[in-house]
Design a protein around this nucleic acid. Structure first.
Lengths: 218, 218
DNA sequence: GTACGAGTAGACCGATCGGTTTACTCGATA
DNA sequence: TATCGAGTAAACCGATCGGTCTACTCGTAC
């Protein structure tokens, strides 16, 4: 009787207080130590909750992993779009003629993704991309977390494509792929601490890629 | 009495037949399923060996992980340098004047690293960079495998620096860092299958980076 | 006033974890 | 002939794995 396992994991906002603490603890532990290195007992303990609560709310460790990735994805998307829009609004485009104003603002947006990434890495991603790390630990294609990872990467590509189109770049789709490449490379190098300022480096390369594609701006 | 644990793990070539099979099994399982998802029992079973042999030869799982990474590193270095040298020898530089011959050959070498990478990813790295994946699973800075990972990445940077210097690039060190960035980004995207031909893409960006640095050639 | 959702406390399950141990076999070397 | 390194076979260790279960306590909403 009593509590029945909810088949679908929580959407993110309608969490009970216990579930909220479980997800927070899981996020910290999964990212910091690796998914397979963290047991459900430890998560429950750190959340100040019993395993029963964890399983009543999330159903399985697999589902909890997927929920962790989903929420991380949401946070990243909100962060990125917010920083990009801020930069576009703050940009001073006085010397740009009215006809090119829109394209110039889009160019600012593209480069702002690198600034957003740089701050994100410092604040939330010192151990590299959480999705790439998760993919390394989830070789099983059937794992529900794999879908979240694929969605995350596809979303970034789509978002950069939009920005490249708006910036009137020639061959915007290829340019977007190149920007994704630079983003991923910068994230890996940030986690490995082998190059000094990898995101800055990626941004510099991006600037040249933009210029080469006829994008006006910075 | 009998067998004593060897403190230092084997160097790679002087392995007993049992140790050889253990290392081969470990390499396949660690890369294919992730380090933390594979137990020593499974490795021993797949190698057709008892756990005693595994522990007599390697001492601990940690040391076995380090040995796996060391051998993978050696294989990659051998592969990369061999392909690069092949390409340099095969290059037809008839129309290049004698004074620039050496620089032109070095330029060929730089681009050959991407061709070598592309074939390596198809043959040995379908799940992405084994070192980046391992880093995701080894958050403990004291783990012996971490040193191997850092060495591997630093070696690539040093190798690319040599090639960039030999190619008479302006600012060769920064160029080398950019090439490392492109290599890492291409490896991540190869593992995630989100972009069609990530290594080809990285190579194209590299060509432009070379031209921008005054490197003659392809 | 009672039914229900969210929670605690904690025992329990079989399986597996990394690692150790004892006892024995085999082939080569000295 | 004696020794020794490499190996097999298999039991054993305490700890932890993901997951289940019973019994009970709240607070709220109908």
């Amino acid at each position: 009787m009593s509590s029945e396992v909810t088949g679908a994991p929580p959407t993110g906002d309608a969490l009970t207080p216990g579930a909220r603490r479980v997800l927070d603890a899981a996020a910290e532990l999964f990212y910091g130590r690796g998914i397979n290195a963290v047991g459900v007992d430890l998560i429950a303990k750190q959340a100040g909750v019993t395993k029963k609560t964890l399983y009543d709310r999330f159903g399985s460790k697999e589902a909890l992993v997927a929920a962790y990735l989903r929420e991380r994805d949401e946070r990243w998307r909100r962060w990125l779009t917010a920083r990009v829009n801020e930069a576009a609004e703050a940009a001073d485009l006085a010397e740009v003629g009215a006809p090119e104003q829109e394209a110039a603002r889009a160019a600012v947006r593209v480069l702002a993704t690198f600034d957003a990434l740089e701050r994100w890495m410092r604040r939330e991603n010192p151990r590299g991309c959480g999705f790439v790390n998760a993919a390394a630990e989830l070789p099983d294609a059937a794992h529900p977390g794999r879908q979240v990872i694929a969605d995350q990467k596809r979303w970034l590509r789509g978002y950069l494509r939009e920005l490249c189109h708006a910036a009137s770049a020639s061959d915007p789709d290829t340019l977007a792929d190149e920007l994704v490449l630079l983003h991923e490379g910068a994230m890996v190098l940030s986690g490995l601490a082998i190059v000094d300022a990898p995101v800055r480096l990626a941004r510099d390369v991006a600037v040249r890629a933009l210029a080469q594609r006829g994008v006006v701006g910075t």
